[in-house]
Design a protein around this nucleic acid. Structure first.
Length: 598
RNA sequence: GCUCCCAUAGCUCAGUGGAUAGAGCACUGGUUUCCUAAACCAGGGGUCACAAGUUCAAGUCUUGUUGGGAGCACCA
């Protein structure tokens, strides 16, 4: 990377100045962080550094003085820097030689799909995401977490991590039992009995489909039997059928998992009882009728806690309040039954035990309150909670015809993820969900995504890729095919010297860093913005010079150098889109409206 | 009442402590004998919610205030 090269040159210069006696710097200056970044304003050269302003105090020189010193003694044996000057309050503005910028092209064309990817760092990471309850189909509320988790996994892989993707299946507890009872009610209905669905039953029609499967496979063998007889069968079938559907829809969205981790296996393998023993051994448990450390928390009369207070009979509590949680949490009810949290803690303990270097949970905003409990629970085990990163994905408001669409499972108007994908397409859905950072809520306007699909940002980027593909094809037709990466040494890249061309080279050079930052911060939108900016510069360049400096011209040497630039741009854009699993078409289909006009 | 997230253009949102705060959409006006007009160019639009603090430098960091959202059952 060029900025790394500049950083090195500056470090060498500082060292030189210290040795030559012109400068006294404290030790910490050697590790001081200074920036080297692309300038926003071309008047400021190509790159700019704040090194003099950051180090001015330590060096006991004014920023301008130090900057001048550095500029005058720049240690640049390779001659990559053409011009260096001091500006403003003490910035050092640098202009690179064209040759230094041209090195990016062979680097990209040689690396191909690997450009932007980082070598394996020997670290492993587990990304757990979606983990929707297997009580029904995925709805659009799950979409953002699904795409965000998938993108996080892809980015971390590109950053050099060995990534495992996991879906945690909550197949234990009252919700799946409710599902089983609903299936049974529908099953009775199919056998001609009049039924009344329980108030908490799942009203969706998909339950009837599951009941049909039950009827088809088992006939009437469960009719007029006590619950204890049919419940296990209904439960297992319901979970299996729902998971089948979930897996299928995720597949449509281009999302796959390495592991499906079942909650019941934690119970079967005694991991739930073991974590209780671990906590007890550490003296983290106590028996009580209510949490002792609640910091005099005020519970409102209309709170759910008050509403369900008759169920809260006490039991075994974990001292999570010691580790920043609002209050201690119950793990075992008075009858000794584990609560959901306990299994989840056992699950996270299990994740640690599997030896990952990094653990990532992608949670919806409605689970945000769960975070401090898990973190506290891990700390109470003596585990390093800095290894555990919980990405809290904020809620999305889906707008249709100006109104917000609700998508709760209990409401009648379920908006399924499946339907969203069918309506707007996977690429559009993915792009729109990933173009916003996870911690802001945003509005997904369906009408806009559909009606104005011609102005859709995803098409803008894809069109850019297609345009470059067409250019390479046109060159072939014009009998000037791009010679390719192997014969790059025969191409005179010195011909590339337009300011826009230099700018695009510098921009592409940033791609690996963009990928790394996006991975480290779990911010896929950085890659999308990068792609948009890069393609925007290309469209602009393409239009500006369409009458003068054409890419394919009679000057064969110039044509080859520009085709090399286009090939590098295309590769970079392709890699950016592939990184997020968005398709990069070789040509764009005309839109429906254009077809109508023609 | 408490915890977490957010507040930047008419709308939806970017913005690694750095120079004159950006993009898309919307609006106004231009650009096609030509490598894809799904494109480009120009224009109008801003008290970066408010206040104090830290810093050579704050949209960015700290604290407080206001406003919006999510959550605060032994449901999962």
């Amino acid at each position: 990377m060029i900025s790394d090269q500049i950083r090195y040159i500056i470090s060498q210069t500082l060292q030189y100045l210290c040795e030559a006696g012109g400068l006294t710097l404290a030790v910490e200056a050697q590790t001081a962080i200074f920036s080297v970044e692309l300038t926003k304003n071309p008047d400021h050269g190509d790159y700019s550094s704040n090194v003099a302003m950051v180090l001015s105090k330590l060096a006991k020189q004014s920023p301008k003085q130090l900057a001048t010193n550095i500029v005058q003694h720049l240690q640049d044996p390779t001659g990559a820097i053409r011009k260096a000057e001091v500006a403003g309050p003490g910035f050092i503005n640098l202009t690179m030689t064209d040759a230094a910028l041209h090195e990016i092209i062979p680097a990209i064309l040689k690396a191909q799909a690997q450009f932007g990817r980082h070598p394996a760092n020997g670290q492993s990471v587990l990304v757990e995401f979606v983990s929707a309850n297997p009580t029904g189909p995925l709805h659009v509320g799950h979409a953002r977490c699904a795409f965000m988790g998938d993108a996080a996994a892809r980015l971390l892989s590109a950053a050099g991590y060995k990534v495992t993707r996991e879906f945690y299946v909550n197949d234990v507890g009252s919700q799946v039992k409710t599902l089983a009872r609903t299936i049974y009610a529908r099953y009775q209905e199919l056998h001609g009995e009049a039924i009344q669905l329980a108030a908490n039953a799942y009203p969706g029609a998909y339950v009837i489909d599951i009941a049909r499967v039950l009827q088809k496979e088992d006939g009437n063998k469960w009719m007029h039997q006590p619950e204890s007889v049919w419940l296990p069968r209904c439960l297992a079938l319901g979970i299996a059928e729902n998971l089948k559907n979930i897996r299928e829809v995720l597949g449509q969205a281009g999302i796959t998992f390495d592991n499906w981790y079942f909650e019941h296996s934690l119970h079967d393998e005694k991991k739930v009882s073991k974590i209780i023993e671990d906590y007890r051994a550490k003296g983290m448990l106590y028996e009580a009728t209510k949490a002792e450390n609640s910091f005099d928390k005020v519970r409102r009369e209309d709170s759910k806690s008050a509403q369900y207070s008759h169920q809260q009979l006490g039991g075994t509590f974990l001292k999570t309040a010691q580790y920043g949680d609002e209050e201690d949490r119950i793990l075992l009810k008075s009858d000794g039954e584990p609560v959901y949290l306990l299994a989840d803690l056992a699950y996270h303990q299990e994740k640690y035990a599997r030896g990952f270097d990094l653990l990532i949970d992608v949670f919806g905003a409605d689970h945000a309150g769960h975070v401090p409990r898990i973190k506290a629970g891990m700390q109470a085990l003596g585990l390093d909670d800095t290894k555990l990163h919980i990405l809290s994905v904020q809620i999305v408001h889906l707008l249709k015809e100006g109104k917000e669409v609700r998508f709760s499972k209990r409401a009648g108007d379920i908006y399924l993820l499946e339907d969203l994908l069918a309506e707007v397409g996977v690429d559009v859905a993915r792009f729109i969900f990933l173009m916003r950072s996870a911690h802001t809520q945003f509005d997904f306007d369906l009408d806009l995504a559909l009606k104005q699909s011609n102005d859709n940002p995803v098409f803008y980027v894809q069109y850019g890729h297609a345009r470059m593909a067409t250019l390479l094809k046109r060159a072939l037709e014009a009998n000037q095919p791009f010679m390719g990466a192997e014969k790059l040494h025969e191409i005179d890249l010195q011909k590339l010297c337009l300011p826009e061309e230099r700018r695009m080279l510098m921009k592409m050079d940033l791609f690996p860093e963009v990928v790394m930052l996006a991975a480290k911060n779990l911010e896929p939108h950085r890659v999308i913005y990068f792609a948009q900016e890069l393609i925007s510069e290309f469209h602009s360049y393409f239009s500006k010079y369409r009458h003068s400096e054409r890419i394919i011209s009679d000057d064969k040497a110039l044509t080859q150098s520009r085709l090399a630039l286009v090939a590098a741009l295309k590769q970079t854009l392709y890699n950016a889109l592939m990184l997020l699993n968005i398709s990069a078409p070789e040509h764009m289909q005309p839109s429906g409206e254009e077809l109508l006009e023609a």
